[in-house]
Amino acid sequence: MRATFKQLHTFILILCLLLSFGPATYAQAQDGIPASATPVTIRHFNEQELQKLKASKDFEYFEEVKPDQNFLERAWSGFKKWLRKIFYTSKSGPVWEYLLYAALVAGIILIIIRLLGMDTGNLFGKKTEISDMPYQVYEENIHEMDMKALIEEAVQQRDFRKAIRLHYLQSLKHLTDRGFILWRPGKTNRSYISEIKSQELRREFEQLTSMFEYVWYGGAALGDELFASARAEFILFDKQLNQYA
């Protein structure tokens, strides 16, 4: 009962509001604009001027707007067009294009590796044996030394230790020349011994090495007799080398 009463009130309120707009609308209809007495002159567009304006780019509102590209995109797009122009033919198909992409990626990777100074040998699981060291090392090239003259000079000066050393270096040179060992500055005497395949030759060179080490590293003093004996062994070894060659 109470709800019905509320609905009726709402209806009367809306009705009153609608009826209140009626007189205002009627009042506006009374105010009209008076008709003009001046005759109307019809003007036409200048056809030439119209065509001229139509042709002008300033008024071309329907031009196709391309998306903005940065410098790299434009360069890449240009590069692709250039590649297509050179390599792409109806016969080759897209295979060439894929190969070119692969070559391009490989080139970029190599440049990055180069810039970082990385060792490429390690990329494939192989460790580089020797890398360039940023220093100069002292090296004595046995192949450039005049051994005979130096030995004679040492003997004349009675510097027997030096003479033994030179004899040993000469033996190393002969072993290298005949391919028994591979000369490397960082190798030790024992490394060279292990490189010699012939058992007999290896044993003989081992004896010479022991003698050289005792004299040179051990600082042993040599008299005339001992030196003569040691020298004879070196000369004999050098002669025997020819038999094995």
Binding site: K127, E129, I130, S131, M133, Y135, V137, Y138, E139, E140, R165, Y168, L169, R184, P185, G186, K187, T188, N189, F212, W216
Partner: peptide, 15 residues
């Protein structure tokens, strides 16, 4: 050890 090996290989053994 690799670097030490490289260094040793580069320096001439005194003889």
């Amino acid at each position: 050890d690799d670097i030490i090996k490289q260094i040793i290989q580069k320096i001439e053994v005194p003889r």
